[in-house]
Simulated assay, not measured.
Amino acid sequence: MSQLVKQNRRKIFGLILLVIILLICMLSSLMFGIKHYALADIYNMSMFFNAQDITHIIIWKERFPRMVIAVVTGASLGMAGMISQLLTRNPLGSPSVLGINAGSIFFIVVFVVVLNVTDLNVIVYFAFLGALLAAVLVYLLGTVSNSGTTSVRIILAGIAVNAMFVSFTQIILLMNQKGMNDVLFWMAGTISGRTLDMLFAVLPFLLSALIVTCFLAGSMNIYASGESIAKGLGQNIMVMKLTLLVLMVVLAGGSLAVIGNVAFVGLIIPHLARSLVGNNYAWLTSYSIVLGSIFLLVADISTRLINPPSEIPLGVITAFLGAPFFIYVAFKGGRARV
């Protein structure tokens, strides 16, 4: 009992430490960029905002929205990755690997380029629809077998669906190259140029999904113990799977509708969280939220500092970090329990 109390104290301390790091990263996001600002500038902007001061305008109109968007979408993608690994029971599971990213981008391209839809509030629902279709296709392809569902089959189905949607997207853009500029906004994956209005269009969905996922931590612990055990404990497996699928689609699709095709966040974050707190989803949910926010904030800050005054697309940074991590987990044999 005393050992359990000590472990919980360590996890609480670790979470508090991560929250402090998150706050430092949020402050750094306001300070660092093509032009660096001091803490005094941030304080003066907060307390004595001057609409005629260019420093105040840049911090408030450009850097503050980037910071908020990175925090919310990073948390959402981290949680979506945790859910996808639980749902597929595979440490390689993530929205990007399962084709969720490609499905969302494909639907955005179809409705923006082909149907000339420009209303972000409408495009958000198309991103959700694309993510849902990709998730359903992966699940169906991964279960169409006499030998049942395996985590490897799910991953292979995800790779196939991802390749299919990427191919369809490229065909559409080749047939209508004039529309490429309209969708590079989402395809490149970046927070630069995004506004809070874009985030507000999906914020209710993301916050609701994050809250529901946290409340489902106990049920996820039961589900993670195995379907036979979960059934024996009275859990409705089909309802649980459907709920997890919807939550993953909302979290991943909503984030992609704002920042575009940013991959591998959902792969890396659950592994980092699991290395710190184990497989207890009561802790994994909170750690994934904070770590996801920190990761995307650091990645966004890096896009500004690596090659100033130019910015590197955020998707490039996350792919640079995520691709080797994917290879490492794959060669490790995927033995981590999820």
Rank of each mutant, 00 (worst) to 15 (best):
R337Q: 10
M1P: 02
V246L: 15
Y328W: 12
V114Q: 09
P91F: 05
I34Q: 13
V166T: 14
N121H: 12
N279K: 06
Y139Q: 14
N261I: 02
K11H: 13
I105Y: 00
S225R: 09
N116V: 02
A188L: 14
I191N: 05
L18M: 12
S208D: 00
Q235T: 11
L251Q: 06
S145W: 02
L210E: 11
L297A: 07
A257R: 11
F264H: 10
P95A: 06
W186Q: 02
T73W: 00
Q85R: 11
G14R: 08
V112G: 00
M45G: 09
A131I: 08
M31N: 00
I59G: 04
N101Q: 12
N279E: 07
I42C: 04
F126W: 10
N116Q: 13
S151D: 03
L174K: 05
L115E: 08
I259Y: 00
A252T: 14
Y328H: 07
V290T: 11
T150K: 13
F325Q: 01
M164Q: 07
M248S: 15
T190P: 00
P313T: 06
M1E: 08
V152R: 12
N307G: 00
Q3N: 06
I317L: 04
F13P: 01
F264V: 09
G93F: 08
I154W: 13
F32L: 15
L267W: 03
L141V: 07
F64P: 03
S94R: 02
F48I: 04
V249C: 10
W283N: 07
I58H: 10
L92I: 13
T143G: 09
N181Y: 11
Q52I: 03
R304I: 09
M1K: 03
I20S: 12
F326R: 14
L98W: 01
P309C: 11
A323D: 01
T303R: 00
K332I: 01
D300N: 03
P95Q: 04
M79L: 15
S104I: 11
R10K: 13
L291R: 04
L244Y: 08
S76C: 15
V113N: 01
I211C: 04
S28M: 15
G179Y: 01
G322M: 06
F107Q: 05
L27C: 12
V183Q: 01
S46V: 12
T243R: 02
M67L: 07
V265C: 11
A70K: 07
L247P: 12
L206Y: 05
I237F: 10
Q235N: 10
A224L: 03
D182A: 14
R89T: 08
V122G: 00
N280R: 07
I301D: 08
A40C: 04
V97K: 02
A75F: 06
N261A: 14
L203A: 10
S275W: 10
I21M: 09
I69P: 00
L39K: 07
N90A: 08
A330F: 15
G142V: 10
